[in-house]
Amino acid sequence: MNPFRSFIKRPNKTRYDGEDDDENILYVLRASTLLLLPNLAFIILLCFAPFVAGPFIASFEIGGIRVLNPAVMFSVTVLFYLFVFGFALQAFLNWFFNTYVITDKKIVDLDFQGVLYKNISEATLDNIEDITSTVKGAFGVVFNVGSVFIQTAAEKNEFEFENVDHPAKIRDIIADLVAETKKNGTIRDND
């Protein structure tokens, strides 16, 4: 399984918290993989930082005593690279788990931010009233990345699938599923 996919049709062995026994996940969507590139560039930059700043920090003295002797300097450098690893892991997990799930009954928006925030919203397909896709800016137009806004009849007014690849295709998929649900009361199990 490629962990960097942002558009997955009928994923295997995947389930979300609150899924019904007779419910099937049809699509899993994430923000475009391209959004990981700024973090990747920053991480590469951080990897070179000890080579640039290390000699200056290592030579820092107070009253003729080196603050960071070679052993402490080694520990600090390892801590720094561990921090870079932790930052990369956190950035990837935030991207991977901020997921939009489309099932044959619902759409589900899973939001995680940092370590301490979790939010899950869902709406049944028959509650969806209006779907809009938007592509804006040079980045969005060049790479076909944009947002899908889903208006529901329920109190919670709007779902937003942010920075997804192929927003028009996703809008079309959801619109077809909503139309089928409203017509037949269910989604027929076909590809």
Partner: peptide, 21 residues
Amino acid sequence: VYAFIMLRQIDLMNRSFHTPL
């Protein structure tokens, strides 16, 4: 402490959205 919290966070994320990974 942060690494331990991240461990708990991964557990929570995996329970909220379970994948083969």
